[in-house]
Simulated scan of single mutants.
Amino acid sequence: MSFFKRLKDAIVQKSEAVTQKFTDGLAKTRDLLVEKVEDLVRRYKKLDENFFEELEEILIAADVGVNTVMELIDELRSEVRKHKIENALDLQPILSEKLVNLLKNDNTASTELNVETGRLNVILFVGVNGVGKTTTIGKMAHMFKQQGKKVIMAAGDTFRAAAIEQLEVWGDRVGVEVIKHSQGADPAAVIFDAVHAAKSRGADILLCDTAGRLQNKVNLMEELNKVYRVLQREIPNAPHEVLLVLDATTGQNALSQAKTFGQSAGVTGIVLTKLDGTAKGGIVIAIRNELQIPVKYVGLGEKMDDLQPFDPEQFVHALFAGLIEEKETEEKE
């Protein structure tokens, strides 16, 4: 069975609506990455160094990550020597499978959220300003509420009045209570009150916003550590998730932020926003391969239900959607 047939079979049981969201959301990345690779393999009848140099440029342009690309190209060269491949077309399914394997990297933790029934689950959100952190919290609140869970949101970004107001707007929109203090208040005090409110109301989920912390702002990192201490004193093993929100449109800058926060904030997973607005979707591959931090959710649009759990098979299927249909037509003929 061909790679593309196996890939499609793996998606059959998935929701058609979700599959379409991934397909639509990854259109720009598909145009840059897959279609350019497709054009490349059709132009080169024979594999040579120029082919590999062009392929390298395409992958780096899609922000697959320089280190990941170099490893990938070395592996492809090895496959060419090992199997005596001469035609570039024969290399394409090998490249596709290797991308799948990178996304399914077994060394990374689960892509599912650490949420358990019967306890107050605390999810802390970190990341710099402007990446869509507050919007992500609002969308996740909506998602959990749709699942029948009782949700509380904590406006822990007290440095910006706009952040508190924005979370309140989301709270009204999705029907979720927001615990807040005034601008300039101690974020740890907000989180403390939110924990007690969540406990008293029998909440299942507590979603905590934090200030947009830049890696060079030592005082803000210390503030975050204070929030950690409050949570751990009030709830054993909290926070249960620390989600770093990254803007996919920033490409390699997102990878740099992930490295910094991963080292200093105990990040357990990544939410990649605005994936539909960029051709740099390859950053998902770079993050998973280079940082061993799982991408848990991706933003595929501006609607309330456009925050989707990350699924490696859905991601690859969406990237290669047109190519899969083309291969199926060829095989039928």
Rank of each mutant, 00 (worst) to 15 (best):
A154Q: 05
A155V: 00
A155D: 00
G156Y: 08
D157W: 09
A162K: 11
A162R: 10
E165P: 00
Q166D: 08
L167A: 08
E168D: 05
G175E: 07
G175P: 12
V178D: 06
H181Y: 09
H181T: 02
S182G: 14
S182H: 13
Q183H: 05
A185H: 04
D186H: 05
A188V: 01
A189G: 05
I191M: 12
A198K: 06
A203H: 04
A203F: 03
D204E: 04
I205D: 02
L207P: 03
D209Y: 06
G212P: 00
L214P: 01
V218R: 15
K226Y: 06
K226D: 00
Y228G: 00
V230T: 01
V230C: 04
R233Q: 11
P239L: 13
H240E: 11
L246M: 09
A248W: 06
G251R: 08
G251I: 03
G251A: 08
Q252T: 01
Q252W: 09
Q252I: 01
N253W: 11
Q257M: 08
A258S: 08
G262T: 04
Q263G: 12
S264A: 15
S264I: 11
V267E: 09
G269L: 11
I270Q: 07
V271F: 15
K274R: 09
K274C: 08
D276W: 10
D276M: 11
K280H: 03
K280I: 01
G281L: 07
G282L: 10
I283V: 15
N289C: 04
N289R: 13
E290H: 02
I293D: 07
V295H: 13
V295R: 10
V295Y: 14
